[in-house]
Computed example of a mutant assay.
Amino acid sequence: MSATELPASHAELMDGVYRWQRHIYNLTRKYYLLGRDRLVDGLDVPAGGTVLELGCGTGRNIILAARRYPDAHFFGLDISAEMLETASAAIAREGLSARVKLAKGDATDFNAGALFGRAAFDRVFVSYSLSMIPGWEKTVSAALAALSPGGSLHIVDFGQQEGLPGWFRSLLRGWLRKFHVAPRESLRDVLESESQRTGATFHFRTLYRGYAWLAIVKLGH
């Protein structure tokens, strides 16, 4: 899918939300986007492997992963041109441009071959993006379709705060709505269903009393 074919409403919405926020995004989000570093540490990328991040945003996670796995090659997709501008500058400052390639695209429907020159990846990860993507279930399917045999999909996102006080959940949900973020109550069920459909193994854990959910779906060889 080319940039001109993107669903303009969501792309424009994200550009509007992050046109100014992108400059302070990493500083503010580090306090409540919990579990991202744990996801990166658990990628276990093979030497010379390939990694795709869907919803790469400012590039914070992909830069961290590129440092963590210096022999791997990374690819980032985002629907927001504003975020990609920030990510590209950050990647260049880190001297990682030779190993990290970015493209504008819709995470629910993308052609990795056309965007990146390769159709499959050893790892795909999605960090706090499914809660912002309309039709996010399609992103899960698209991510699994982009995996090489034996590859794995890694997801971290808001949970249902099931072990936290009700007042905290209400305050958090109200705050998140201001940024068009909605924790996906059916995330675990969708991932289990997709794992069964693809014959993959599924690992799921709650973090911080349900504040965040972390999941890994691993394909067979």
Rank of each mutant, 00 (worst) to 15 (best):
T206H: 10
G117I: 12
R197Y: 07
V126D: 00
S170R: 13
W136M: 01
G174K: 10
G117E: 14
L207F: 05
L187T: 10
K178V: 13
L130M: 03
G199W: 11
F204A: 10
D122K: 06
S141Q: 07
Q161P: 00
S195I: 07
I133S: 01
W175G: 10
F202C: 08
F116T: 08
R173Y: 15
R118S: 02
G117D: 13
G166Y: 00
F202V: 08
A120K: 15
L153F: 15
F158Q: 07
W167T: 13
L176F: 09
A182K: 09
G117S: 10
F204E: 13
A120H: 13
H203A: 12
S152E: 15
F168I: 14
L130A: 04
T201D: 10
F202Q: 00
H203R: 12
G117K: 11
V190A: 12
H180N: 11
F121L: 05
P165V: 10
G117T: 14
V140F: 03
E192Y: 04
S141T: 09
L147S: 03
F158L: 14
L171N: 02
G199E: 14
L187V: 08
M132Y: 00
F202A: 03
F179I: 12
G199S: 12
L176T: 05
A200G: 09
D189A: 15
G199P: 11
Y208P: 00
P134I: 12
A143L: 12
W136Q: 02
W167L: 09
Q196V: 11
E137T: 04
L187M: 09
A143D: 10
